[in-house]
């Protein structure tokens, strides 16, 4: 995966409202919610990194982008079907059904 491709994958995972699985170069996999990405680096990590919130760990886990092979959207998307439009459509159907009954 090129640097640009990886950046796109990271961005997609960052926008995702569910857990992701990060495949690392050493063969390990890390599962968690991708809460942050910084492709410039910051004070606590001078190179590009992502941050994950992992269910079993109290602190955020920081992973350098150079260690990442791929990121997969593996958890349930908690935003799916929960927009205002979805709710309004459901309500309309409910009312219609109630009207018929």
């Amino acid at each position: 995966m090129t640097e640009t491709e990886l950046a796109a994958v990271i961005e997609k995972a960052f926008d995702y409202r569910g857990d992701v699985t990060v495949d690392l170069k050493d063969g390990r996999q890390v599962v968690g919610f991708l809460s942050n990405r910084n492709l410039k680096g910051a004070e606590h990590c001078s190179e590009p990194f992502i941050e994950l919130m992992i269910a079993s760990q109290p602190e955020l886990v920081c992973i350098a982008c150079r260690d990442i092979v791929n990121i997969r959207l593996t958890g349930e998307d908690t935003a799916a079907g929960k927009s205002w439009e979805d709710w309004a459509a459901k309500e309309a159907t409910k009312k219609k059904t109630q009207g018929k009954a």
Binding site: R17, G18, D19, F33, M53, A55, G75, E76, T78, A79, K82, S83, W84, D86, W87, A88
Partner: peptide, 18 residues
Amino acid sequence: LECAGCGKIQYPEHVLQR
């Protein structure tokens, strides 16, 4: 509450527990 479209509550369970 679970207001439709509210982005604050759209997280996995382990995040909501924090």
